[in-house]
């Protein structure tokens, strides 16, 4: 990167890593094979390797891959059961798909040079809207008009209820926004910060002050990377558990 800038100034392009570009010389329309395609393909392959090939032996005493697959299964299954209740278990494959896609995309995005699909609002917004629409439609199918009881806080004093209903309604429609921006924002911010620190790293080639700055920036990259590993999992977890909470609201509206 320093080379591009002619070696006399530091170059900061922290957002370049998020560019969506076609892999071949074609226009970026719906079906163009882009870096999004490439890294989503990697995600899908990794998931298939872990969950299909890893469990192929159906061993009673599991191997490494099978253990991880079973662990992920039990983890999400327990989450759905605990948060959404017993009737939420029916939607476990749906929730599991979301969790596994997000957690794999996040971690694959941590590979240096990789493209992080979940850092894009377009991706997370679709995921969040899918959850929002699914939960809303399911709520109306399961409970009919009673689903609107979600907004009518019957435990509050009567004069307050219309106001609370308005607040609840707004918060309900803000859900997909916060749901999607939280994930994309976290992923983007972490990667951008790492890239900013990385921009400082070649300073030692240009200035004596780099003797101090370069090791510090490398240290900071390492620390941020460790934090990102945590964030990758926590964001997938938060996304999934909120999905479970919304699912619970759809199955059992009313406070």
């Amino acid at each position: 990167m320093a080379g591009e800038a002619g070696n006399e100034a530091l170059a900061f392009h922290p957002m370049d890593q998020f560019k969506v570009e076609p892999l071949f010389d074609v226009a970026l329309d719906y079906f163009a094979v882009s870096n999004v395609t490439q890294w989503m393909g990697v995600t899908v392959l990794c998931i298939i390797v872990l969950f299909v090939l890893g469990t192929g032996k159906r061993a009673v005493v599991p191997g490494r891959l099978q253990s991880v697959a079973e662990l992920a299964y039990s983890f999400v299954y327990k989450m759905v059961e605990d948060v959404s209740g017993h009737d939420g278990v029916k939607y476990f494959p749906y929730v599991f798909t979301l969790f596994i896609f997000i957690v794999f995309s996040n971690f694959i995005g941590l590979i240096p040079g990789a493209f992080t699909t979940t850092s894009h609002i377009a991706v997370t917004a679709v995921l969040a809207m899918m959850v929002f629409l699914f939960v809303t439609i399911l709520g109306f199918i399961k409970n009919g008009f009673h689903f609107l009881g979600l907004f009518w806080v019957s435990s509050a004093p009567l004069p307050l209820r219309p106001i609370l209903a308005l607040i609840e309604l707004i918060s309900y429609f803000v859900r997909p926004v916060s749901h999607s921006i939280r994930l994309a924002g976290n992923m983007m911010a972490g990667h951008a910060v790492i890239k900013v620190f990385a921009g400082f790293a070649p300073l030692v080639l240009m200035s004596w002050i780099g003797v101090a700055v370069t090791p510090l920036s490398i240290l900071a990259i390492t620390a941020m990377y460790g934090l990102e590993i945590l964030v990758c999992f926590i964001q997938a977890y938060v996304f999934t558990i909120l999905t479970c909470v919304y699912l619970k609201d759809a199955l059992h509206p009313g406070h």
Binding site: Y30, F31, I47, V123
Partner: peptide, 22 residues
């Protein structure tokens, strides 16, 4: 301008993952 491409491939990936998993 990149949204249609991303959304298309996201849906493809999700459908594959969901099918294979479920």
């Amino acid at each position: 301008a990149t949204f249609p491409n991303q959304i298309f491939w996201l849906l493809v990936a999700l459908v594959i993952i969901y099918t294979v998993l479920s």
